[in-house]
Design a protein around this nucleic acid. Sequence first.
DNA 1: TGACACTTTGCAATCGATTGCAATAGAATG
DNA 2: CATTCTATTGCAATCGATTGCAAAGTGTCA
Lengths: 344, 344
Amino acid sequence: MPQKKPGQSNIDMQQLADMAGVSRATVSRALNDSPLVNERTKDKIRELAEKHHFVMNETARNLRLQRSNMICVVLMHDVELSHHLSDPFFLRMVGSVVDHLAESGHDLMLYHKPVTSAAEFLAARVYRQCDGAIFIGQGMIHEELNKLAGYQKPIVVWGADLPGRDYRIVGSDNVMGGELATQHLLSQGCKRIAFFGDIRKPELALRHEGYTNALRHAGIEPDSSLQLDPPMERGAAESIIDNFLENKPGIDGIVCSSDMLAASAISCLQRHGISVPSQVAVTGYDDLEIGARINPTLTTVSQDVSGGGKQLVKKMMGLLAGKKVRDSIRDTSLVIRESSLRKG
Amino acid sequence: MPQKKPGQSNIDMQQLADMAGVSRATVSRALNDSPLVNERTKDKIRELAEKHHFVMNETARNLRLQRSNMICVVLMHDVELSHHLSDPFFLRMVGSVVDHLAESGHDLMLYHKPVTSAAEFLAARVYRQCDGAIFIGQGMIHEELNKLAGYQKPIVVWGADLPGRDYRIVGSDNVMGGELATQHLLSQGCKRIAFFGDIRKPELALRHEGYTNALRHAGIEPDSSLQLDPPMERGAAESIIDNFLENKPGIDGIVCSSDMLAASAISCLQRHGISVPSQVAVTGYDDLEIGARINPTLTTVSQDVSGGGKQLVKKMMGLLAGKKVRDSIRDTSLVIRESSLRKG
DNA sequence: TGACACTTTGCAATCGATTGCAATAGAATG
DNA sequence: CATTCTATTGCAATCGATTGCAAAGTGTCA
């Protein structure tokens, strides 16, 4: 339909006013259900508006009202490594945020370019147009987020509580998550447990901290040679894991920082003829839907993603209302979802 | 940061003009790199703008220019069944669309409420604010999409070529996808092949059509009792599959309409002591990242999602430019990604 | 009938950018 | 020096809604 069909579109407020025999002011009030307008007049206007498919110009409205009711959501995933979005965590989070924003009468704009500096984001059209921004992840730009928090529009970040932080965060307790996973393996009788994940990333560093805490608490001294950082890309990841497994024959458990990684680890183990979980037990992180559908079922740390999205939106709404808002780290509950199978 | 730090924000164009000793008109021209403005003047204005973190009011700009540069993307997944977004297909598609929109100088607004009528969507703020809408999936609202296509703003839909269609579509060839999967199983020696998927959904109906085509071509008459529609929810799905497997002992292959479903099917088969793929071979659809990481590797029909997103954006840009635009069904290439294991 | 209260409507300014046209300055030309 | 041309810049209208204030309409009561 390259050409608009005449008569079905482009009814503007003036035409609507003319048809109803009133002024634009009255039409505006009627459509906003103002108590100043007579009920019969309102009904007539609403009826005409619907009949003629009147679509109000939201841009003009936003200009006048000095807001856009739009929140920008920035996906801070590793763009270099996984240029195509493959981590379902982001979709679940975005889904939760968009739903909760809708409940608050807001819409969502998505931003997917890698943000490396505050200035760059300030210049982006999405920033110019939104009322505030929610970052899913901190990437490596903690300092830039600090700057951004000082400018015009409020920001809220899903991430970890880094030192010297000026922006508001929502996050799950990654230390506890790491502890839960490790404790689970310890309770299955594991003694020599590896950790798979990139500890340069703030959230994963905390999970690793939880991992070492749990080990020490069990009287086991963490061995830094058991920490491995497989890349995102599958082929590379699996060859690195294969290599690791050949050089570290003694391990009997692996704490993985994601379900995707856990799936690769399990697959590599099985290829090496190692039985999972009876010889080596594995935990993941994120509770992917599909993890429960595979065999053996993936044991995983489940974050309350929906609750996290809700908190992000709640904090954002607080900031928009000019309130003082606190961080929210514990509000998001963590549980371990156990495999149906246990280490024999 | 409930309070904005003074001096770091709210610089408006007038103040910038005053500092530069020019009028607002010149500032506007300078920031838009108009050739009418002296280069030295431009540089001074740009420098001041950056120094004072000037953020232009995009809403005012949009109002004046009569466009928003925003495209609304509507996720038409089964909200009743999977209220939480769990299908990674959507994320990959949204990711591709947002990236290609960015290349075309556009931003993306996400819409996630179930759309059941054209009127409802016309009244949504996202519609009032966007330049056009992209629907990911047709849901059950083919007729409503027809209406929508006749109104103010262009729409493009990811979906199937339904009869009596007035809107532009982009899609992969689902009939061929169904054929590919079925042919793969036939080539593995399967004779009695089931189909798992909801054939009320247009795209899945076409995959089912490809399935029957392939069977007939191999001289096998399709048996409608071998079509099953497991629900989205895992527990319910698996009990229905279990039940099916007990009543249909003769099958040796299953064509699944999604990888998620295939994972459940494999899991159920294994629970029944049936070896996959040697006794019963299974194919999925979507090529989920994690499918390649599990054991046995999932054989699946891989759609070129990124290419699909690119086409959606291309068609939308064409419509926005007032061009006549054709549907695009074959542009998206389909391949079967085989399991590392084969039916013995 | 006139005064007053209350309901309903319209007028016109406003939000912040863009841009056609007019105006100015300075250079080039006759 | 007067004139024409070009390069910059400013003035002011414009986009389409909202809203304070004024005004018109309706009803009540003395």
